[in-house]
Structure formats: C-alpha cells, structure tokens
Design a protein around this nucleic acid. Structure first.
Ligand SMILES: Nc1ccn([C@H]2C[C@H](O)[C@@H](COP(=O)(O)OP(=O)(O)OP(=O)(O)O)O2)c(=O)n1
Ligand SMILES: [Mg+2]
Ligand SMILES: [Mg+2]
Length: 633
DNA sequence: ATCCTCCCCTAC
DNA sequence: TAAGGTAGGGGAGGAT
C-alpha cells in the first residue's frame, strides 16, 4: 500500500488475494489510494514523520490523551506531537486519560464515554503553534446540545488520468465542519436505463454473452436478479420496520384486542408469573410456497426455486457453461478439476417432497437432479416474497411488538404477555396465528415455543412443515439428548466436521464431554455456547430493537475485468451503491474498506471479487469466503 | 488488560 | 441464460 496517511491506519484498504494460497499482495496500479490524503498533511507535522521524536517543549505536561478513531492529524502524528511536547498518548481509554481526542465519534460510543472531555485534535496542533497550552474548552467536539456529526464524505471524482481510484473516503468534518457538504447527490436507485445502457444490454443479448461487471448497468441488473441480495435487503428492512413500529406504537394491538374479546367468556389458561414463552415462527419452504399459490398443480411434487430452467447441464451461455467450454479447450495437462458440467444454478428453496430425496436449499441444481430426477423448477417471484413477508410481519405486529426480526420469513416473538392477556394456551394461540397467516398469505408456516430462543427454534424444526410444537420445560432434558448437533443454530459445516471427527454427532454426545474439551476444539466462546445449547440452555435475550453497525456491498459474480478502466467503472458503481445505502438510512461512518480478490492462477476464467464496506462505529471489515469450499475464483 | 487487524464461520 | 449478498459473533496474535 502506498501513502503514508493510510498506512497502518484504519482507513481504507485495497487488497488482492491469491485465492489458492491465501497470500496477500499489493496491487501496484491501485496502491496510490493514499496519495490524495497524504497531500493534505499539515506541514507542521512533517518534521516528525519517520524520525526520532525529540523533546521540544513541556506544554502538555500532565495531559494524557486518548485518541479515538480517525483524526486529522492522524493518531500517529498526535502521538509524536504529544511525546515531543511532554504529554502522554494512548490509543485507548485508561484511568489516567484527561482528554479524549476525536474528529468523529458515533453516537453509540459517545454514550459509553465517561466525563472525559471530547476535544478536537486541532487543540493539540494549535497549542503547539501558539507555544502554550490553549483552553481545550474552545475545542470541544460537541458543545452540549447541537452535535454536528461529521460524515464520511464520498466525493465522486472525475475520471481523468486513470492513475487514481475514482472514489475517496475522507473524514474531514471537524476542521471544516460541513453540515451540507458538496456531496454529489447520486441518481435514484431505480432510475430508467439510459439509451446507452439499453443498447449495451441489447448488444450483450445479441451476442449471447452474459453481462460482466464492466457494463455500467451490471450492478443494478445483478441486484434485480440476486435472491441473496433480496433476502439481505429485506432482513434489514424488517429489522427496521420493527424498530419503527415500536417507536410509533400507541400501545394498541387490534389483533390482540379481538382475541381478548373472543375469549371473554370461557376458560382461561393459567400462566405462572415467572415463566416466559418465546415463539419462533418461520414460513415453510418460503419461496416454494409463494410459487405454489399460482401453481397449485405443482403441490405435492418435488419442486425447487432456481434461475435455471429444468435441465442438468449448465447452459453454455451462462458463466458456468462458458467456464466449462473454456476448460474443455485446455490441454490435458492444464486441466484442473472444475467438476462435471452440471448446472451450478443454486436452489434457493425446495419443497418438502424434494427434501425427502436429499435435496436441500442452497444446493446446485445439477446435484439436486441427480438426487431427485423428477425435480421440477419454478422461477423466482421477488414481489411475491415481499408481499407475503409484509403480511407476516404486519399480522404478528397486530398482536405484539416484542419481535426480533430474523429474516423475511422468520422471527422470534416474546408471547409471554400476549398469552397472559388473552388467556389462550400455547396450542390455541399457535393454531390461531398459523391459520390467520395461511388465510392472509396462502402460505403455510410453522411455529415453535419454548422458554428461550433455542428451545423455540428447535421446536419449530420439529413442527415443520405446517405444524406447531411446544417444547416444555420438563421435556427439555430428554428432548435434547437425541438432537443432532447439525440442528443447532451456529453449528455449520466446519464446526460439524470438527465435532464429527471426534465421533460427536448428537447433543447427548456433547453433554458427556467436559467444557474444557469442547472449548479446546471450538474456542472459548463457541465451546461454552455449544455446551449450553446441548442442554437446551440459551441465555441470549430477544433483541427487539436493532442498530446496524455496518453497511457493505459485495459482488462475487460475473466480475471479469480486462482493463483497469473497467475495474474503475465498477468501483464507481459499488461506491455509489454504498453511498446510496448510507444516505438512505442517514448513516455516518468512520471508515471504509475496499477489497479485491484475484483469480487463482489455475482458475479457468478470469473472475475476481470486490467488496466495499463501510462501518459506523468501531469495526469495519468486509469478508468473503470465495475460493474455499470448492468454488473456482 | 484491552484493543486492533485480519481473518473464519454462520444464517437467511 | 445465472445473477456465489450481507451482517454479525468471535478468535489469533500483535500493539499499546
Ligand atoms: N441457501 C439459501 C437459504 C435460504 N434462501 C431463501 C429461500 C428460502 O425460502 C428463504 C427462507 O429460508 P429458510 O431457511 O427459512 O428455508 P425455507 O423457508 O425455504 O424452508 P423451511 O421450511 O426449512 O424454513 O430464504 C436462499 O435463497 N438460499
Ligand atoms: Mg422458512
Ligand atoms: Mg427462515
């Protein structure tokens, strides 16, 4: 990485990775990222850069600063300045801290800070310039009420020489506060395609070539077809919806009120005051169920939702098909295993009939058809998913807002109060709500109940499809022993293989092992969690409100740059995208990471991967696991 | 002791 | 025609 200002700092990264061995290497053409920022350094500071610190004065005697996050000048420089002028410097808060130095602090953090004054870094610089300690009160970052939260400023640069990355992230709101910045307002997300874009789409179609990321409309088109993008987006939306409904609630729940009225006479269930009941609710094979509303003739058949039409072979116009075709032309010695020419179209959701043959969500179509030759497919219906999700959430919200949104087809609900107030038994409530959702959406769902979220979730698994189950406290112990470890949330492919290598396959097996044994295998936290889970214990509360910590955009599909210019064009769209999402939720940020993966030398097609990630708060890193689990990157 | 960076892993 | 996104928990190992 070039550029001193970025160096070693949490600022911006551009990394290329050899996918085969995981080595990191710099990308020379792109490493000039930091030069722009470097040019902005104060001349005053240059003398300390890369040199031994000499004591110049004692004006900061007794002052101990804690630098939080990104500052201008950066922490490096402040450290040198403090040392040169008799002060103490820390990168984190300690008991000796007298001043907190920050250019930009997220609200979350401010709340957590004690009485230490938050001071702009210019206090240090100006004091040195004046040769005496100035009154820090004139440099407070926030003057009590009016906080002007500085922003990460995405300034879109003109593409000129091609020697600069066309996007900068700067955090410069303090020295020159700018409520209204000169940020370019990006065009709306669903804008009409321009003539040029349309033309290029037609050209691509005409040539039978799939669009690549070099195409300016690639990103929007990709998003319109990516089900993973859709469910990620919806997930964030529903978490937000719950937040908003809770904020604006008048405490009035029509669904609940109707239930109370209906139950006015008749026996009421008794609930001990201490017992809380958690409900987990999840749509059955969600995408499939939405499709079946319009295709009742396919009910009862093995069915999968996927982009590909029926067929085992990857279409040669698809990326996978093209990859295979290219591979065929290699010399025998050059060939690496890229698998059969099966369709690598992913199955988003499959019916329970298909599951009987071993088909699973997330499986490639080619593999699934081998397991289940009768498998039918149906296309996606993004609007349908939104409609059903919306009804699901609105329906539950008419009973209670003690909801933790998990995804577009799933949530946890604390129904303790609801059951008490309505006098319904768990069974009565479950039947009622499942019927209501079925009637309103035409789609079946299942519900599970327990004393905590884990128990509720395991109960849903048992209930599926189209069922309900209450895992009662007395039954938990015996219920858990036979539960496969793979059923536990948080136990995925890697964890499962670690466990099964040691002959552990059920919760009962884990119960017999010591805590330290499991922790040595999985790590401290994961080990403790698993030991608890194996007994049905889960102390994590439901989180009804949610604060997003980061925003990121990744594309790991169809990236085949031939020229650096194409890479810049795509970076431009990615940064526009991240910026749009940030402005949409009015989020400010402290930093930015940018990542690039390049193809493994032996990979048959030049595909690379890009990620852009912006975080609000402390952590900011984008990550992807491409290149492992057999994918060809 | 606590934080940071760079990951790995998981869920939907 | 395919569309391998996204957010968060957490660990290893180094810095402070
Ligand atoms: N690898 C995956 C997993 C899920 N989904 C989408 C399609 C699913 O229909 C939806 C909900 O995921 P679930 O895990 O709830 O799975 P289903 O609803 O399909 O089935 P189940 O009845 O097991 O809940 O998310 C996906 O696109 N890709
Ligand atoms: Mg589901
Ligand atoms: Mg689900």
């Amino acid at each position: 990485m070039g550029g001193g200002f970025c160096r070693g700092k949490r600022k911006a990264n551009l990394v290329a990775r050899d996918m085969r061995n995981g080595n990191k290497q710099n990308v020379p053409e792109l490493a000039d990222w930091g030069n722009y920022m470097e040019a902005k350094r104060l001349k005053l500071l240059d003398q300390f850069h890369n040199s031994e610190v000499k004591r110049i004065s004692n004006i900061f005697e007794g002052i101990s600063i804690f630098v939080n996050g990104l500052t201008r000048p950066p922490a490096d420089e402040l450290k040198n300045l403090m040392a040169a002028h008799g002060g103490e410097f820390h990168m984190y808060q300690s008991s000796s801290t007298t001043h907190l130095i920050a250019s930009n602090l997220p609200n979350v953090k401010i709340k957590n800070l004690g009485r230490v004054p938050i001071v702009k870094p210019s206090w240090i610089v100006d004091s040195i310039a004046m040769g005496k300690l100035l009154d820090f009160k004139r440099y407070l970052l926030y003057n009590n009420q009016s906080r002007t939260q500085p922003r990460l400023d995405f300034t879109v640069m003109q593409k000129t020489t091609g020697s600069k990355v066309p996007v900068q992230a700067t955090s410069n709101g303090i020295a020159i506060p700018h409520e209204q910045t000169n940020m370019e307002v990006p065009s709306p997300r669903n804008q009409d395609h321009t003539e040029i874009e349309n033309k290029s789409a037609i050209d691509n179609k005409g040539k039978g070539i799939s669009k690549t990321a070099a195409d300016p409309s690639f990103l929007q088109e990709f998003y319109q077809n990516s089900r993973l993008h859709l469910i990620s987006t919806l997930c964030a939306e529903y978490k937000d919806l719950v937040n908003k409904l809770r904020e604006t609630s008048d405490g009035h729940f029509p669904g609940k009120d109707k239930l109370i009225a209906k139950k006015a006479e008749g026996p009421r269930a008794f609930y001990p005051s201490f017992a809380s009941v958690v409900m987990h609710i999840d749509m059955d094979c969600f995408f499939v169920s939405v499709a079946l509303r319009k295709r009742p003739d396919l009910r009862g058949k093995p069915l999968a939702i996927t982009h590909a039409r029926n067929g085992r072979l990857a279409n040669e116009n698809s990326h996978r098909g093209a990859e295979f075709k290219l591979w065929e032309h290699l010399e025998p010695g050059e060939k690496v295993d890229i698998g059969d020419r099966d369709s690598m179209s992913e199955i988003a959701s499959c019916s329970y009939e298909a599951r009987k043959s071993g088909v699973r969500n997330g499986m490639f179509l080619g593999q699934a058809i081998k397991l289940c030759p009768d498998l039918k497919t149906q296309p996606y219906d993004f609007e349908g998913y939104k409609e059903v999700s919306n009804i699901l959430y609105r329906t539950i919200a008419s009973y209670t807002l003690d909801i933790e949104a998990v995804s577009c087809d799933e949530m946890y609900v604390d129904v303790t109060k609801l059951l008490k107030e309505t006098g319904l038994t768990v069974e009565e409530w479950a039947t009622h709500i499942r019927n209501e959702i079925m009637e309103a959406t035409g789609c079946p769902c299942s519900t599970g109940f327990g004393a905590n979220r884990l128990q509720a979730r395991l109960a849903t698994r048992k209930a599926k499809p189209a069922g309900q189950y209450y895992l009662q406290a007395d039954d938990v112990e015996s219920y858990m022993t036979d539960i496969p470890l793979s059923d536990l949330p948080g136990v995925g492919r890697v964890t499962l293989s670690k466990l099964s290598n040691l002959g552990l396959s059920t919760c009962g097996d884990v119960q017999m092992k010591s805590l330290s044994f499991i922790q040595a295998l999985l790590g401290k936290k994961a080990g403790q969690t698993l030991k608890d889970q194996a007994r049905g214990v889960d102390s994590r509360p439901l989180n009804f409100t949610h604060e997003r910590k980061s925003i990121s955009a990744d594309v790991n599909y169809g990236i085949r740059f031939k020229k650096l210019e194409e890479c810049y064009t795509f970076l431009q769209s990615l940064s526009d995208e991240v910026f749009n999402r940030m402005s949409a939720v009015n989020m400010t940020a402290k930093g930015l990471t940018l990542k690039l993966l390049v193809r493994a030398p032996e990979a048959p097609v030049n595909i690379c991967w890009l990620n852009m990630h912006v975080a609000h708060g402390i952590y900011l890193y984008g990550e992807h696991n491409a290149g492992r689990d057999g994918s060809k990157v």
